[in-house]
């Protein structure tokens, strides 16, 4: 017991299987432990707890592709490495007056390069434009839903938090029900988002995805545009002040969406 007037903090500060207790500033604690069997027992329990926590913290599944992804990222250096530059540099001094044939061939190479690079740059620009505000049509949002839902997982799983800690203003007034759990996520497009579970665990899921992107989402400003509907799943979307709201319900189709979303007074 700690009635030996030993503060709790030094006990907690000693790492298991370390020489921390030998530190001069912990001499008093050392003496107390030697004197007080109850305190020693309590310290032993702390150490055992620490060992178990340390082991449990390592229990995180690692994505199988992670090492490859990291290596791929590392292998795209910003500048051309020196050895690569050496390979493409001319092996003999350049001609001061190239022949016409050579000029024509260079022109041809330039044209071919331009013909390849321009469409590629255009495609890349279009592909990554979401960060810069390109329009995102509703069908593209609908196509992303599977991925987004897979990324957020299922509550009360890893990363899900209690509704009390949900930042204010995330759930729009149009939603009739109270959140059950929430978690942050990031879309494949790089937009930060928050997933809010609206259904209690006993009911089929109803997940509100709130995405903050610089893209222009082509859905109405008031609830809602139907993205998809089937017996298994229905999804509706709208956008307000740059935020995209997508409500996905399992089972119940459009009627369940209507139960959860308050219709706009102007609709």
């Amino acid at each position: 017991m700690t009635s030996d007037r030993v503060p709790r903090e030094p006990l907690d500060a000693c790492r298991p299987d370390s020489a921390d207790l030998e530190l001069p500033e912990l001499a008093a604690l050392r003496e107390s432990l030697a004197r007080n069997a109850d305190l020693a027992e309590q310290f032993d329990r702390i150490v055992q707890f620490d060992r178990r926590i340390a082991a449990a913290l390592q229990d995180v599944p690692v994505p199988t592709h992670l090492a490859e992804q990291i290596m791929a990222r590392l292998q795209t250096p910003p500048d051309l490495p020196a050895d690569r530059a050496a390979v493409i540099s001319p092996s003999r001094p350049p001609q001061t007056r190239p022949s016409e044939h050579r000029v024509a061939r260079r022109q041809l190479v330039k044209w071919l390069a331009a013909a390849t690079v321009v469409p590629l740059a255009g495609w890349l620009g279009w592909r990554w434009w979401p960060r810069a505000g390109r329009p995102v049509p509703a069908h593209e949002i609908a196509a992303s839903l599977d991925t987004w839902l897979k990324m957020v997982g299922t509550p009360p799983g890893f990363g899900w938090k209690s509704p009390e800690s949900l930042p204010p203003g995330v759930v729009p007034p149009a939603i009739r029900t109270l959140p059950q759990a929430w978690r942050p996520f990031r879309t494949r497009q790089g937009w930060p988002g928050i997933a809010v579970e609206l259904a209690p665990p006993t009911e089929p899921r109803a997940t509100l995805l709130v995405v903050q992107g610089s893209a222009r989402f082509e859905v109405p400003a008031r609830p809602y545009a139907l993205l998809s509907t089937s017996m298994e799943r229905a999804a509706a979307a709208w956008t307000t002040q740059g935020r995209l709201f997508v409500l996905v319900v399992e089972r119940g189709g459009k009627p369940r969406l209507d139960q959860l979303i308050r219709p706009s007074p102007l609709a």
């Binding site: 913290l57 390592q58 995180v60 690692v62 994505p63 992670l66 090492a67 992804q69 990291i70 290596m71 990222r73 590392l74 990324m151 890893f158 990363g159 978690r183 942050p184 996520f185 990031r186």
Partner: peptide, 30 residues
């Protein structure tokens, strides 16, 4: 990367509480 990516990722998950954010952190770290 091979020897330490798992430790780096696990630590990132524990710090951020989010596997997606942890992948970003791991890449940024290396």
């Amino acid at each position: 990367v091979v020897e330490h990516h798992a430790s780096v990722y696990r630590y990132a998950v524990r710090l951020s509480g989010c596997p997606v954010e942890a992948e970003d952190l791991a890449q940024q770290t290396f």
